[in-house]
Design a binder for these strands. Structure first.
Lengths: 151, 151
DNA sequence: GGTCAAAGCTTGAGATGGTGAAGCACCTGG
DNA sequence: CCAGGTGCTTCACCATCTCAAGCTTTGACC
């Protein structure tokens, strides 16, 4: 295996299937690791999105869901002591979500315990890692619809 | 941007972040396309998992969720006319989910309308397509926990 | 044949995730 | 000051998910 001289270029359908399968498997590994710490995947995803303080509205944007939805998710993170709301200086409408030390700790545990994902990375050569990282970086802006705008 | 001759091998954390971002963006494209046809992402995912007839229990395995959950999802697919249940020959406990012609049609529409995903594929060279497909195929068995068992 | 454990599916309760509309507090421009 | 827009919350409503319990059927054992 390895340097198979296969020159057949996969079709879009084949790539879609492969990408979907890998994405789904990654997500299940993530959800399982989060569940071991009593978090749903949405909660864990939100926790990962607030490593730096983020206003509620911006968090909704990052998670790709409605702002009213974020209220409940942050409520639960707050009641678990993993994050808390702070008033924003300069605009009293805005509430900023800040991760707590315990939240950061659990987030690191979850990431460290994604065993299948780490196994998958171990199974890759340096060339493959570089290729995958490069492809992801190139494709992400297109896939996420951000053609240029930062933030 | 582009041909940076960076030979630095990405860390596991960097790969995880890249993979998560691409997976999330792909999923959002998928969910948006499904929503345009009145389907939730779970329903669309289930529809994709029954391209061949599948017993309820096996479908739960494919979707990675509880069997009781699949009952409701298939109920809705059935009420939309996109799939139906059939009795299994030989075991009257088993119900087999079969996609309808309309279901297959909608599934193809959804896949064809994932514009961002197709754009992302267009942006890749043949070498990149081959590399990505090869990496996915190699990594998937590890990531999905199936070390060898087929079927 | 009869009995019983196990398998496959459904149902119900309860919590979470998600949208949309309405409401309140606050900011901003006139 | 006032009008409109923005940010967050609340509410109603449905989909999703898990667990526990139930039903039918199967298969193995006596």
């Amino acid at each position: 295996m390895g340097s198979t001289a296969t020159t057949t270029v996969p079709t879009n359908a084949e790539l879609m299937e492969a990408l979907a399968a890998v994405g789904a498997a990654y997500f299940q590994d993530f959800a399982a690791a989060a569940a071991r710490h009593g978090l749903s995947s949405s909660q864990a995803k939100a926790l990962g999105a607030v490593q730096e303080p983020v206003p509620m509205r911006a968090l909704a944007g990052r998670l790709g869901c409605d702002a009213s939805n974020v209220t409940g998710i942050v409520d639960r993170l707050e009641s678990l002591g993993l994050a808390h709301r702070e008033a924003a200086a300069g605009d009293r409408r805005v509430k900023i979500v800040v991760i707590t030390a315990e939240g950061r700790e659990i987030l690191n545990h979850i990431r460290g315990e994604m065993a299948r994902t780490h196994q998958a990375f171990e199974a890759m050569t340096d060339e493959q890692r570089i290729a995958l990282h490069s492809i992801c970086g190139q494709v992400l802006p297109v896939l996420a619809g951000r053609t240029g705008t930062p933030q």
